[in-house]
Design a protein around this nucleic acid. Structure first.
Lengths: 227, 227
DNA sequence: TTATTTATAATAGTTTTACTATCATTTTAA
DNA sequence: TTAAAATGATAGTAAAACTATTATAAATAA
């Protein structure tokens, strides 16, 4: 039935690939909903099992713990943003235009992807904004980095840095700017919603055009070009 | 014995002011050490009690839970950076020079403060870099913001934004730039240490001069001035 | 100084979280 | 149609996150 996308994620993230079974896809689907409702701290496998009419033990057969489930979702998100960028920059030559599309993909990664019905990308984006950073701010980061768990993120940033270097080959901080644009996007959406005095932009009902405008302004100023 | 600084923090953060007793100051001191060693997830009041030869129940008389203890430390840090900025920008008129000092305070907030012997500022800075963001990325953020728990952060950013507006009154994003400089400082030190492919700078042994250089470059580019 | 309050320690207990183990049942694949 | 694999149902353990109680020590006020 239609095109089925399978997102390639590091095998160490899960015990059994959730994309391969109904139960697995259900875990993904409902974990996004529940994380969005409860936040990472109050979220647990017992509540998830209740929510989806399954059992705790069944979920533990897919994921070792909730941290790895979050990292799985975050990796999915990184991979999906990379995919969005890839399809939307095909046949675009101007790197400035490419960066504009990249920024648009960062902020509007909430547009639903018709090819995966078990992932509500809009809700996943909300989860990433609120909880994403917790996936890579842990004492396990070095160990997990060694296992390749952050490859998707690094690859994404690497691609963006490539475009930045195309625009301005003398710019000294292409990787830092790339990761900062991504982090800033999520951060300032969060600030606008919860701590508005830490930002200048406003957001309403998943309309993030002001964030987009700000990131484009920052990028153009730093890389010396007119928007 | 010497000058004693008492940092004014929101009273809702604690049940009993830890600055007012030996035990309280011990809780602060050892929680910084233990958070730095274990990370927020593995840290708990039982281990803290063991570490400092006290009891779980005694710690619970000072802090409701470990989240609020973290928020207390983070608020302390914000207040301390604001203090650093205040004393180091006294009698400085040039706002560009002021911003330079602000950036230096963000990255080198690890220099020890001789006035509080129970807070190892260098270690506290490490804790902030690794765990700080968890203090304001929770489902309680709106509720806690309503109680004024983030006032120190907002005040700090407000002051920095003021300097930014002095430098360039037409700049559209003074608050966003201010908070971004702060977040970026912590973030890229973290990246340099743990996920170096997400940044361009390097750090070694608490020497953060490259971060400082980068932030100054970003600021000057965005605000249109020469360093 | 003693009496009184207050702070801390020692101990024990409850509830929730984060798992692990076992076995029965259902689904799938050969 | 039969074996193998996946899931469900149930139970249990260990640690985390607290709360409660009583004893003791320290500070302070009369």
């Amino acid at each position: 039935m239609g095109i089925e996308i399978k997102i390639a994620l590091n095998e160490g993230l899960y015990l059994k690939d959730p994309q391969d079974s109904v139960l697995g896809r259900n875990i993904i689907k409902h974990s996004i909903i529940l994380l969005s409702d409860l936040g990472f701290e109050a979220f647990n496998f017992k509540k998830l099992a209740q929510e989806m009419n399954s059992t705790e033990a069944s979920i533990y057969r897919y994921f070792e713990n909730k941290h790895l489930l979050l990292l799985y979702l975050v990796s999915w998100y990184w991979e999906w943003v990379a995919y969005l960028i890839r399809i939307n920059t095909t046949n675009i030559d101007d790197p400035k235009r490419k960066l504009e599309i990249i920024i648009n993909s960062f902020v509007s990664a909430s547009v639903d992807n018709p090819t995966t019905d078990y992932v509500d990308e809009s809700k996943l984006h909300s989860v990433i904004i609120a909880e994403g950073i917790k996936a890579y701010h842990t004492k396990e980061v070095d160990n997990e980095n060694g296992k390749g768990f952050f490859k998707n993120y690094k690859q994404l940033i690497n691609n963006v840095a490539g475009v930045i270097m195309e625009i301005n080959p003398t710019f000294e901080y292409p990787y830092a700017l790339a990761s900062n644009l991504f982090e800033m996007s999520n951060n300032h959406i969060y600030f606008a919603k919860h701590l508005p005095r830490l930002t200048d932009i406003q957001v309403s009902e998943n309309k993030y055009s002001e964030v987009e405008k700000m990131l484009n302004y920052f990028a153009s100023k730093l890389l010396d070009y007119e928007i």
